Amino acid sequence: MTDSDSLQPNDPTDRYTLRSVSRALRLLDLLGEAGGTGFTVTELSAQLGASKSATFALLRTLVAQSYVSEVQPGPRYRLGRAVIRLADSLNEGLGLMDVCRPVMHELTARTGWTTRLAVADEGHPVFIDRVDGPGTIRFTTQLGRREFPHHSAAGKALLSTLSAEQVARIAAENGLPERTRHTITDVSTLMNDLSMSRERGYAIDDEEDDEGVYCVGAAFLGRDGSPLGSISITGLKRDITTWRARELGELVREHADKISNGFGGPSWQEYLLTNPPANH
C-alpha cells in the first residue's frame, strides 16, 4: 500500500478517512466550481496542496472512469459524463430537473411534439431526459450516451456556441459520419449551417438524423454564459411549412431562454451582445 492510499485522517478524530479518496472528491468539487473552463494539473495541484505527480495520478484514474474529461489544448480537466449519470440517477442533479422538467412539459404541450433534454459534454450532446408528445408515435432516445453533434438539432445548437476552431477540431477528431442522405458531412457546409443557427437562435435537423423526422433545438446557458446543454423537439417532417418551422424554432428558443433564466444565465439575445459572430 502506497503512502497516498494509506489511512491518513484529515481529522484526528476520524481514523478511517482515506486521504486519496478525500483528495479525489475535493478534486471533483474544484472542477465543479470551475465550470466549463476547467483546470490544469498545475492549478489543481496548488489548490489540493498535493504534488503534480499525485494530482496527475488522481486525474488519470478519474479520466479512465469518465468522472473527469481531458480537454485540449492544455490539457485542461473538467467534470466528465459519469458525474452526469450520477446526478441523473437522483433525478434532481444540481437542480437541473427542477428547472428543466416544467419547461419541457410546457413545450410539449404547446407544440404536441416530443421534447428532449441534453447536457453539453465537450460540444457533444448527452441526452438525459425526454417528455413524449401525445399520440402513438414514440421517438426513442438512449439516455446517458454521448452522441455525435453534427446530425442532431440539439448537437448543432451546442456547436453554434463554439468558435470555428473548436468546431473544426471536433470534426477532425470525430469525423462527420453520415446518418441519412441529408446529413451534413463536410466542415464548410456545417460551418454555414451553424452560422445560420447562431443568428436565429436555434438549430434545425431536417431529416439529418432519421428520414422523415424533423427536429428543432436551442442551447441554454449558465450564469457565466457558457452552454450547459440544449433542449429540442422532435416530430414528423410531413406538413412542415416555412411559417410552421419558424414558429417552432421561436418556441424552442423561448423555452431555452426560460431554462437559462432558471440558472441565472443570459437570454440568447443578451449572449450575442457579448459573443459577436466575428469570434465564432
Rank of each mutant, 00 (worst) to 15 (best):
R110C: 05
Q65L: 11
R101E: 15
T180K: 02
A34V: 09
L251Y: 06
E165R: 09
L251V: 05
R200M: 09
E70I: 08
S22I: 07
A87N: 11
A157P: 00
P276N: 11
M1Q: 08
I184R: 10
N275I: 01
G249I: 11
V68M: 07
D132C: 04
W243R: 12
D98S: 13
G93D: 04
T242S: 15
T274G: 15
E43L: 04
L221R: 14
G36R: 09
S51R: 11
E178C: 08
G217A: 12
S160F: 00
F263A: 06
S20C: 14
V83Q: 09
R244W: 13
G265K: 03
T140P: 01
E208G: 07
D11R: 15
G225I: 07
W113K: 09
E178I: 10
Y202L: 07
D98K: 06
V103W: 01
G80Y: 02
V119D: 02
I128G: 00
D29H: 09
W268T: 03
G38P: 07
T180W: 04
R60P: 00
Y214S: 02
G222N: 12
I184A: 04
P102F: 03
T185S: 15
L48Q: 07
G144I: 04
T274V: 12
E33Q: 13
D14K: 10
I233N: 02
R60G: 00
R81N: 10
R76E: 05
D129W: 02
E254H: 14
S22G: 14
E106Y: 01
D11P: 03
P75G: 11
E165G: 05
R238A: 15
P9E: 13
P149E: 03
T274A: 13
G249L: 11
T183P: 02
L79W: 01
G32H: 07
R244Q: 13
D29I: 09
G35W: 06
T42C: 02
E33I: 06
T55A: 05
T108R: 14
L31Y: 00
H124T: 05
G225R: 10
P75Y: 10
H105P: 00
A120T: 11
G229K: 03
T141G: 00
T242V: 15
D210R: 12
E106M: 07
G225N: 08
E173H: 12
A171T: 11
L251S: 10
A245R: 15
E33S: 08
Y67W: 15
Y77H: 08
